[in-house]
């Protein structure tokens, strides 16, 4: 049985320095192109956001307040999962480690996920789900319009396809936000509460970091803050018609894009990844 370290244990810092000197004698491992890394990161941010939001809304399947809503929400979830396949495939390609879209979706832990926090927020009532969708759609629509002009033709192509789908998502979520905001007293109250509750999770969409700056400099993606004005305008227009008050606070929760999530993501992943984790390597 190994004994516990005692006072004669050599200085660990010296040992580490020694080890580092030996290691540096080995040939240098090629480092990934910093620009490529930011590019694959950007693609994960897109694909993870569509995946996690698609997952959340698919939880409604069979439980919506009207048959038409079951159909429409399943349709939106389907579009988002389809977009996920495209973004994550490209992320794997750009990353260059041979990981497929499924590998990325099913075999990463939460800290490697890059989705916006708003996507993992629990569904709440149907109004909450619709408000989350509206806030996201209004941003997603602007983002895809900008990405359709990306310097990378693969990104531009996916964005053009996804943009058509998301234009419809935004039309639908705006319409319902207006009708429920300006519906009964109760529907108005629920929509206002949802907006107030989600507001601090919306700002993250517009906060950039060094990686965003890198891809923006290369013309691959817009600077996140550049999407704010158009988003504000959409909100102003729709929420006014809905007779809802835009909250005043400007505080924004952030961290999702860097892999620091809320507690909810771990549960989403443990459910989503169950089969791949329980039966490693099986083909489905």
């Amino acid at each position: 049985m190994p004994s516990l370290p005692d006072m004669t244990t050599p200085n660990v810092a010296d040992l580490a320095r020694e080890a580092a000197q030996t290691a540096s004698a080995h040939p240098a491992v090629p480092q990934p192109d910093a620009g490529q890394e930011a590019f694959s990161e950007m693609l994960l941010r897109l694909g993870d956001s569509t995946l996690i939001l698609g997952h959340r809304i698919s939880e409604w399947c069979g439980h919506s307040p009207a048959l038409e809503e079951d159909i429409a929400l399943a349709n939106v979830a389907l579009d988002l999962i389809g977009q996920t396949q495209l973004w994550l495939s490209l992320a794997g390609e750009v990353e260059g480690k041979g990981r497929s879209a499924d590998d990325l979706a099913y075999l990463r832990d939460a800290w490697d996920f890059r989705n916006l926090l708003i996507c993992e927020r629990p569904n709440g009532d149907f109004g909450h789900t619709l408000m989350r969708q509206f806030l996201f759609d209004a941003w997603h629509h602007e983002l895809l319009k900008a990405l359709a002009a990306s310097s990378d033709p693969r990104v531009a192509e996916i964005a053009a396809k996804a943009g058509k789908e998301v234009a419809y998502h935004l039309e639908r979520s705006s319409d319902l936000v207006v009708r429920l905001g300006d519906g009964t007293e109760e529907s108005h109250r629920r929509m206002q509460e949802a907006l107030d509750d989600l507001w601090s999770y919306a700002g993250e969409m517009f906060i950039g970091d060094a990686k965003d700056a890198e891809v923006a400099a290369r013309g691959i993606a817009p600077d996140p803050s550049s999407l704010r004005a158009a988003w504000d305008q959409t909100l102003q227009h729709v929420l006014t018609e809905a007779t809802l008050q835009i909250p005043e606070g400007s505080f924004a929760h952030k961290g999702g894009k860097q892999g620091i999530h809320t507690e909810h993501l771990g549960y989403i992943l443990s459910e989503m990844q169950f089969l791949q984790r329980a039966y490693p390597g099986a083909s489905w």
């Binding site: 995946l51 997952h55 698919s58 939880e59 399947c61 069979g62 048959l67 079951d70 159909i71 399943a74 349709n75 979830a77 389907l78 999962i81 389809g82 996920t84 396949q85 994550l88 879209a101 499924d102 979706a105 099913y106 459910e271 989503m272 169950f274 089969l275 791949q276 099986a282 489905w284």
Partner: peptide, 21 residues
């Protein structure tokens, strides 16, 4: 749906359940 084993299976199942509705 939330536990479908691949993205493709998830999409197919979502489309199917949507058809039922």
């Amino acid at each position: 749906i939330t536990r479908a084993p691949t993205l493709e299976r998830k999409a197919i199942l979502l489309a199917k359940v949507q058809d039922e509705a």
